[in-house]
């Protein structure tokens, strides 16, 4: 598409600019729509597991509930606490929202369907997702209120802790795929299962434990239940969002769910074959890759909601214990095992 725009009257530089802007909008706008629908799905799944009905008033089956909520929030007044640090208080939700969006630049939706096909794609994701914690810390400090502050401290410690084991999980995937480029990681998964017709590192018994560690660490990284200590409503009111109202609150909400979808997408890309169908069989390749990818995202989102509806919240010291004393040694050991295995087989020459 970029080439087509560059060949028109726009010229090389400006054509690139127009094409890239359109591609960004093609990712960002459906993403926001997806966030609205995924919030609805989350509430419906949660309700079904609690034997409730969930949202069912606005629109058919309550499908328009998220849009009604969005409109309501949009019309509210933005309240800034008088003791708050005004500039940073307003900056924090913008940081959260922006960071949740920029990560999608390197996500491959299908073969060649990626905005920025960069060599260090996985590192870019790691870098951008480590920025997500700033929105929480800044909002907690700038609110000048004790519950948001507690929440900010918890978030900082939690995200830094789990990023360590996520980093080691990513290293074992990168070792196996031989690249940091997400498209190449997906392509390397073709026939990578224990049986040659299975697509995905998750089907490999050596990498499967890492898929589980990554799934749980992803829950902790996005502060979803059972690791939602940053907004534990029984202890901290609403955590770092306590003092926020109106659109500044909505930006947190949108950013948080965009991050959740991102982690589902990363689970699919890193371990379950991304846009590839689960089995390496010619007829299933007739289904477009993007549909497989979206299907996998939805499966993981269902697992996330399922966990949220059924698992009780961790205590803070148990959360830290799991991160540092269980996941870190396991993932370190696995980096050792995976690299040793590859050393003895693939690079034995």
């Amino acid at each position: 598409m970029t080439e087509w725009f560059q060949s028109t009257f726009l010229g090389y530089g400006f054509g690139w600019f127009v094409a890239t802007t359109i591609l960004i909008l093609l990712i960002a706008l459906p993403l926001m729509l997806a966030v609205a629908m995924i919030i609805y799905a989350d509430r419906k799944i949660w309700a079904a597991m609690a034997l409730r009905r969930g949202p069912n008033v606005v629109g058919p089956l309550g499908l328009l509930q998220s849009f009604a909520d969005g409109l309501k929030v949009f019309l509210q007044e933005t309240i800034i606490p008088s003791a708050a640090n005004r500039g940073l208080f307003l900056l924090a939700p913008i940081v959260t929202f922006t960071v949740a969006q920029i990560v999608w630049a390197v996500i491959p939706f299908g073969p060649k369907m990626v905005l920025a096909d960069i060599n260090v794609g996985l590192l870019y994701i790691l870098a951008a997702s480590s920025l997500g914690v700033y929105g929480v810390i800044i909002s907690g400090w700038a609110s000048n209120s004790k519950y948001p502050f507690y929440s900010a401290l918890r978030a900082a410690a939690q995200m830094v802790s789990y990023e360590v084991s996520i980093g080691f999980v990513l290293i074992s995937v990168v070792l196996w795929a031989d690249s940091f480029n997400l498209s190449k990681i997906v392509e390397a998964q073709q026939g990578a299962g224990i049986l040659p017709f299975l697509n995905g590192f998750g089907f490999n018994p050596l990498l499967f434990p890492m898929a589980i560690v990554f799934l749980i660490s992803a829950l902790a990284e996005t502060a979803r239940a059972p690791f939602d200590l940053t907004e534990a409503e029984s202890e901290l009111v609403a955590g770092y969002q306590t003092e926020y109202s109106s659109m500044s609150f909505a930006l947190f909400w949108l950013g948080e769910y965009a991050n959740v979808i991102l982690m589902c997408a990363l689970n699919a890309i890193l371990f379950w074959g991304g846009w590839l169908p689960p089995v390496d069989w010619a007829p299933v390749y007739a289904v477009p890759g993007i549909l497989w990818f979206f299907g996998k995202i939805l499966v993981f989102f269902f697992i996330f909601s399922w966990i949220k509806a059924t698992v009780p919240r961790f205590r803070y010291d148990q959360l830290m214990r799991l991160g540092w004393k269980v996941f870190l040694p396991i993932s370190l050991l696995w980096v050792f095992l995976v690299s040793g295995y590859l050393m003895l087989t693939r690079y034995a020459a």
Binding site: I118, N119, V120, L123, Y124, L126, A127, S130, L131, V133, Y134, I137, W141, F149, A152, L153, A156, A157, M159, V160, E163
Partner: peptide, 26 residues
Amino acid sequence: AEFIAMLLVIVYVGAVAVLFLFVVMM
């Protein structure tokens, strides 16, 4: 040097500065 750039963000912004901010805030 895109690798160094990403490491700069991951290590300094993602870890060191978070701990720094953590301490300074308190």
